[in-house]
Simulated scan of single mutants.
Amino acid sequence: MSESDRLATISDLLRERPFISARELRGLVGVSPATIRRDIEKLASSGLAHKVHGGVAALEQSSPGAVAPALPFVENRDIAVDAKKAIARTAAELVRDGSLIIIHAGSTCFHFGCEIAQRNVRVFTNSMPVAAYLNEYGTCQLTIGGGDLHREPGVLYDPTREDYSFYASQFFVGALGVSSEGLLESNPLLVRFINEICGQANEIIVLVDSRKFEAAPPTVVLPLHRVNRLITDDGLSDRAAQMLDEEGVNYMVANVSESSIDR
C-alpha cells in the first residue's frame, strides 16, 4: 500500500472513529512502527488529524471537553505507556510495606500493580488484568474481588454484595476524565464500584495521565474534595494545574525520567 493510500485509509477510519491506536493501524495497513509514526506525523502536519499518545485522533475529538473514547483495555494499556509507568513509579513510593491497599481497574492502575508486584503488601483488586499479573509475577499477598467477570472493563463485580470485611490504607483509582467537578467515568459499573469501595480506605489516591484533563465523560463518580492525592505526568497543562490548585487538590507530577515534583 502506497503512502497516499495509507493516509487516505487512516483518514477514512477517523471519520468513523474518534481514535485509532498506532498498534491497530500497523495491523490494518501492514507496515512497520516507524512507517506508522511517519504517517501520523504527515496527517498531523497537514492538519488532517491530531497526533496523540499512542495513536491518532480525529480533529473534533482532541479539543478540550471532548468525550474520551472508551477503548478496550488491551489497547488502552499500550497508550501513553511512559507517562503511566512514571505515574506508577511515583505512586509506588507512597506505599508502605506491610499495608493493605486496593487497586482499581484501568491501564494506569495496571502499570501500578506491575510496579508493586513484589512488595511486602496485601493487595485487594477487582481487576482481572492486575490479578493475573500479580498471580504470575508477584510475591505480594493477593485478594481478588468476587462476582461476575465483565470482560470490558475487565473487572469482577457482584452487585448483590452489601459490604466489605476489610479496611485498607490506600485506594489507588484511575478515571476516564478529570474536571473541577471531580473524577469522571462513563461505565455505570465502575461508577457504582468506586462509590462502594471508597469508604473502605483511609486514603484515596488518583492515578491519571495528563490526557484525562482534556476528556469529558458524562458521570461524576467522585468529587475532588474526596481525593487525598492525585498523581499525573509532566504533560499536565497550565490550565489543568490551575484548576487543581483552585480546587485545593494535593497533586504530584511524575516525570518520565523517573523523578517527580510534589506540589
Results as ranks from 00 to 15, higher is better:
His104Lys: 06
Val227Tyr: 03
Ala49Gly: 05
Asp158Trp: 10
Pro218Gly: 12
Gly98Pro: 00
Leu134Gln: 05
Asp158Glu: 14
Gly113Val: 01
Glu196Tyr: 11
Ile87Val: 07
Arg122Thr: 14
Val67Gly: 09
Leu48Ile: 02
Pro33Gln: 03
Glu214Met: 15
Arg239Asn: 09
Ile102Tyr: 02
Leu14Cys: 00
Ile205Cys: 04
Gly47Ala: 11
Glu24Leu: 14
His53Met: 13
Glu162Ser: 13
Asn202Ala: 15
Tyr167Pro: 08
Ala22Gln: 01
Glu152Ile: 11
Gly54Phe: 10
Leu244His: 02
Ile20Trp: 04
Cys198Lys: 10
Ala83Asn: 01
Pro69Gly: 08
Asn126Thr: 07
Val173Ala: 08
Ser32Ala: 11
Tyr167Thr: 05
Val249Glu: 01
Ile36Asn: 07
Arg192Leu: 13
Asp78Lys: 14
Gly47Met: 03
Gly182Thr: 08
Pro188Ile: 07
Pro218Tyr: 07
Leu7Ile: 06
Glu196Cys: 09
Pro69Thr: 10
Arg6Pro: 00
Ala241Glu: 15
Asp82His: 14
Arg122Tyr: 03
Asp158Leu: 14
Pro64Ile: 12
Arg77Ser: 02
Ser63Phe: 15
Ala241Cys: 11
Cys198Ile: 07
Gly146Ser: 12
Pro72Lys: 03
Ala88Pro: 00
Ser32Gln: 06
Gly248His: 09
Ala131Cys: 05
Leu28Gly: 05
Glu75Arg: 08
Val249Gln: 05
Asp82Ile: 08
Val227Ala: 05
Asn255Ser: 14
Phe112Met: 14
Pro159Tyr: 12
Ser210Glu: 01
Leu224Glu: 00
Val256Gly: 00
Ser62Phe: 06
Ala132Glu: 11
Ser186Ala: 13
